[in-house]
Amino acid sequence: MMTAPISRWLRAALLAAGLLAAAGVMAEEEGSSPERNPRDPYERFNRAMFAVNEVMDTYAVRPAARVYDAAAPLPVKMSVGNFFSNVGDLWIGVNNALQGKGGDAGSDLARLLINSTVGIFGLFDVASELGLEHHEEDFGQTLAVWGVGDGGFLFLPILGPRTVRDAAAWGVDYAADPVRIVDPVWVSNSATVLRFVDMRASLLPADRIIDEAAFDRYSYIRDAYLQRRRNLIFDGRPPRLDDDD
């Protein structure tokens, strides 16, 4: 399992990658071809990072996710998913409150209370059965609601597809993550890895669709991510775009 220095190193590496994107590459890509996608100003850097991530995914992350998916029986996977979902509900509630959605925030808090108690430390999602819907919120969405622009698409290894705004906001999400402050550190780190593998495993069925449907994997994943984010920011009801944009 990951030890503290490695996780510190990882954080530093991610930060460095972010800074690299912010500084050097931006300058370098300034004023290239007019055909450039306005939503993807750092495309060259992103494609390089995407290639790095594909290698890591092919040889490490996806195999681990496959093993987990095959080895863990469905009830275990459900409980793992529920547990981390429950842990996240507090921060989701905070973000709903910051976005002025008091009703949703209250429902998130109720979910947390119900699932942590009746749902036995969040292993069972009793609140959903009771009709309290799980919301998907994070600080990046809050910033978007506050009117912060997305700053362009950004692809980072491990973190995957983001925008500049959402990558920065991820730092805040990370700081507020209850899993991170768990003591002892090895439990916290194991939990972080488990959550990551569980998340990747949930995306396994999408792999085949992307393989079959995409003409260019990078573009397909980028555009899917940007659409998904837009949908989340507007809570599932984004205004329709014109046929031409």
């Binding site: 449907a213 995409a214 573009s219 397909y220 899917a224 659409q227 998904r228 989340l232």
Partner: peptide, 17 residues
């Protein structure tokens, strides 16, 4: 639209390419 991702407009940039 699946999970907010349009199966149709997701092709737009690739087709333009």
């Amino acid at each position: 639209t699946v999970a907010g991702i349009s199966l149709v407009t997701n092709y737009r940039d690739q087709f333009a390419q």
